[in-house]
């Protein structure tokens, strides 16, 4: 822990001090305040709030859609990163620049645009509703919005790792008789998996907390298409600050456990 191995950035004490200071002001103190505020409730009240049907439904919805979106991005993002790293084609730089756009765009704009497109009378939504598929105002729509917002994570974490795998490694595998699928399974996947999990975890974490884009496309029907962050907003509107923080604590704990699991999985893969 106290190894001083990097002479490039001098002053372990100073840098660690600064880091802890920033971390405290930006992350630790606000989170601690969250817990302190929640502590105004009795344990019974806390349990009652966090296990109410509406909260549980929203919790399930929030985590399920975020998980779905992260998974979807895991596939699309891998493909995108692959195409951008491995092929040279006109417009490649443009597409590469477009990847980051979901980060720059106000999420509300994204939400409204997606709603306009995928609403039952929207440009794309009308075809979907023709075959009986409802996109906007359903969990599917929420997943869609989250996929849009978290798109860059998997792409950007995979790109450098992919670029770092020399083509020769795949060629070597082919020379040894491996079929394309075997090359992918035994050579590429193991090399990419740690970075992929990082991208997945980032997308998932971001998706759980996303608010702006989802509230427009979700429809926000309690128990059906109401996400947890919205529920917190509802509680705040009713001046139920303790109730809102209770839900915040719930989200925090669940998210922390899930991210911890992903991290452990990553470590298991690395040391295997």
């Amino acid at each position: 822990m106290l190894r001083r191995t990097s002479p490039v950035i001098p002053g372990f004490g100073l840098t660690l001090g600064y880091t802890l200071c920033y971390l405290s002001f930006l992350v630790l103190i606000p989170l601690a305040a969250l817990f302190v505020k929640t502590a105004e409730l009795t344990w019974e009240q806390f349990v009652a709030i966090t296990t109410s049907a509406r909260v549980l439904a929203a919790l399930k919805l929030s985590f399920a859609t975020a998980f779905g979106a992260a998974l979807l991005n895991g596939v699309i993002g891998t493909l995108l990163a692959w195409v951008l790293v491995r092929y040279r084609f006109p417009g490649r730089k443009l597409i590469d620049a477009l990847i980051d756009l979901p980060f720059a765009l106000p999420t509300a704009v994204a939400g409204i645009a997606l709603t306009a497109l995928y609403a039952p009378n929207g440009l794309i939504g009308q075809f979907a509703s023709a075959v009986g598929l409802k996109i906007a105002y359903s969990p599917l729509g929420i997943t869609l919005a989250l996929t849009f917002v978290t798109l860059p994570f998997v792409v950007r974490t995979l790109q450098p790792v992919l670029a770092d795998i020399p083509r020769e490694v795949e060629e070597a595998a082919s020379c040894l008789g491996a079929k394309p699928l075997q090359v992918f399974r035994h050579v590429l996947v193991p090399a990419l998996l740690p970075a992929w999990l990082t991208g997945f975890a980032l997308a998932f974490a971001r998706g759980v907390g996303e608010y702006g884009s989802v509230i427009f496309i979700a429809g926000n029907m309690p128990g059906k298409t109401e996400i947890l962050p919205l529920l917190i907003m509802v509680k705040l509107d009713q001046y139920d600050y303790a109730g809102a923080t209770a839900i915040g604590v719930l989200m925090l704990v669940v998210a922390f456990i899930l991210l911890l699991l992903i991290n452990l999985l990553q470590r298991y893969i690395r040391t295997r």
Binding site: V169, E171, A172, A173, C175, V187
Partner: peptide
């Protein structure tokens, strides 16, 4: 069924 040896070894790192 040819063996191929690359200049930069191309071993599987993982």
């Amino acid at each position: 069924n040819v063996g191929f040896v690359f200049q930069h070894y191309a071993l599987f790192r993982h």
